[in-house]
Each structure stands twice: as structure tokens, then as C-alpha cells.
Design a protein around this nucleic acid. Structure first.
Lengths: 151, 151
DNA sequence: ACAGTTTATCATATAATCATGATCAACGCA
DNA sequence: TGCGTTGATCATGATTATATGATAAACTGT
């Protein structure tokens, strides 16, 4: 697994929140049900995301979580950052001073891979993933529409 | 960190063993000293690699570990396999049925990254890393020779 | 003010990872 | 045979990741 369970949960939760059509607050319980993640554990994950200014939280009725910024401005790297010490150690062989000048044995080959992963997280936004969902939804709706129409 | 500490130790240890000029057995203690990894912990890692037929072990004087095959025939994936359930879960969002046909929201973008990582481990051999070490050694020797000559 | 809802936090549990030290078992050699 | 070397294994512990359940604190609407 290239990302931890927790980061995976965080990504799925943020995506789920972003899917809310009104952009209104979504309750922990609803998110937990929707993405099938332990409720209290998710609560803590969302809280950390709120502290990291990715989400905003509110208590009481009408409370819940929502995005702190438009989905175009939230990268996957930002979502993962509070949980993974991402990019802290890029050397595959753990060489402290590994770099282009003092490369470890795997440096040149591994660098390409690590860079691609890093760029993926930095460049992909929540909106990018939402867009996909929308197209899938559209396809499904299309299928459903056709089926309904034919019935 | 994209690979676990244990996998990192395993890679470094195998590489260190492969560096032995005679291809003779290398003692755990020597490897541990050379790559700065806890001795007993490394012992267990090496034992697992031996069970996985990556290494061969022998006890007693003249004992130690050596490669079970020429370094060209040992991929990094093989070294990592006994420790990491590598490639078990390729879907970033943990969707069980994620595939080209039923893609998750991140599928198309993430697939490229995951594939590159997988191919890196599958295609890179211990010999490839040794080759680098050799060239670096050559460069250093060259520098040293020049310095020595000039002195 | 109060009742109900919701997040925040506390206390705890479980499993995996990472690691240490002691002892056991095999092996080579005198 | 017996001694010293070496990997193999056992017992244990620390730390982190992954949770679970109970309680506290904040907020809404009445």
C-alpha cells in the first residue's frame, strides 16, 4: 500500500463532503455510513483536517463538516499532509544525504517514481476527482434514463 | 515513506551482501555494522529472505549470508515481497472492485503512478544498483588516484 | 432556560511494526 | 570430543496505527 489507511480514509471523506450538492455541512455519521469508515475514528481524522484548515467544523444541530475552500483549491497532498510525513524521506535506501549530487545506488531510477507520486498528490485537486464522479454519475444517469424511458 | 523501514533494511542488506567481491558468505554483524541496522532485527529480516530463497544462510565459522542467485536475477520486488503485501491494493481510494472498467474517482491518474512504482520494483535488479555503486566507486577511485598522483 | 443534536475529547483496546537481549542449535576446526 | 563462532529462535518491550465506547462541550431551536 503506497498510502496509509488513515490517508485513504481522509481522501475518501473529503471527496464525500465535496460531493454535497449544497456545499452545506455534512455530519460525521453520514460520512461514515457513506464511505464505510469507523465513525469515531473518522471523527478524529476530520478534526485534524479541520485544524489543518482543509475543512470547517460546526457543532450542534445543522453542524458537521464542510470544505474550507473550493474543491479546486484543495490538493490531495494537502489532505494527506496532516497524516503522512509525506516527502520527508524520498531516498529509497534511507541515505540521509541522498540527492542528485550524492546519489544512493537507486537514486536516479527511484527519483522518477517518487517525483511522479509527489506530483500526482500536488497537482490533483478534489475538484479533479469530483469531475470524474460527475461523469460517472452522468453515465449512470444516462443508463437509468434510457432504462426508465424504455419502461 | 513509500516503503516500510523493514523493506528499506532488506534492500540495503541485500545490496551490501551483493557488494562482497568474492561472493562469499557475509556475517550478520558485519552487515549490520556496514549499513547501520539493529543486529538482531536484521538477523530476522535476513532469515526471512533466506526462507524466500533470495539468500542462502550457513551457521558456524565461515557461515553467514550470500545471494542465492546472481544479482541480475534478483529484482527489488522479490526482495520486498516477503515483507510488504506489495501490489495487493492498488486502488488509492480503497475501492475493492476498482479497475479500468469500474474506476474509482482517482483511478486513471493514480494508475500511472502505481504502475510506475510497480515496474520500478519489478524491473530493477540488484545488479542494476551494484552497477551504480561500481561507477561511483570508479569515479571516487579516479579522484583519489589523481589526488595521489599529484601528491 | 431547556432539550436535543452534534462535534470534541478522554480513556482504553488491539494489532502491527520496530526493536533488544538472552539463549538455543548448528557448524568448523584443533 | 570439545571449544568457539555463527545464525536461529524465544521472550519481551516500545512505539505507532487503527480503532471503540463513554463523556464533555458547544450549538440550535423552542
Amino acid at each position: 500500500m503506497l498510502v496509509s489507511q488513515t490517508v485513504e480514509y481522509a481522501l475518501r471523506a473529503v471527496l464525500q463532503i465535496a460531493r454535497d450538492p449544497d456545499g452545506s455541512s455534512v455530519r460525521v455519521g453520514d460520512i461514515a455510513d457513506a464511505i464505510d469508515v469507523p465513525r469515531n475514528y473518522l471523527s478524529k481524522i476530520l478534526h485534524r483536517l479541520a485544524r489543518a484548515r482543509i475543512l470547517e467544523s460546526a457543532r450542534g444541530p445543522t453542524g458537521g463538516f464542510k470544505l474550507a475552500r473550493p474543491p479546486e483549491e484543495i490538493t490531495l497532498a494537502q489532505v494527506a499532509a496532516p497524516f503522512a510525513p509525506m516527502g520527508e524521506r524520498t531516498c529509497l535506501l534511507g541515505q540521509p544525504a541522498c540527492g542528485d549530487d550524492r546519489p544512493c545506488a537507486a537514486h536516479s531510477r527511484w527519483k522518477l517514481v517518487a517525483q511522479q507520486a509527489e506530483e500526482f498528490f500536488n497537482r490533483t485537486t478534489v475538484a479533479d476527482l469530483l469531475a470524474h464522479g460527475a461523469s460517472t454519475e452522468a453515465k449512470r444517469a444516462g443508463r437509468r434514463r434510457r432504462a426508465t424511458t424504455s419502461a
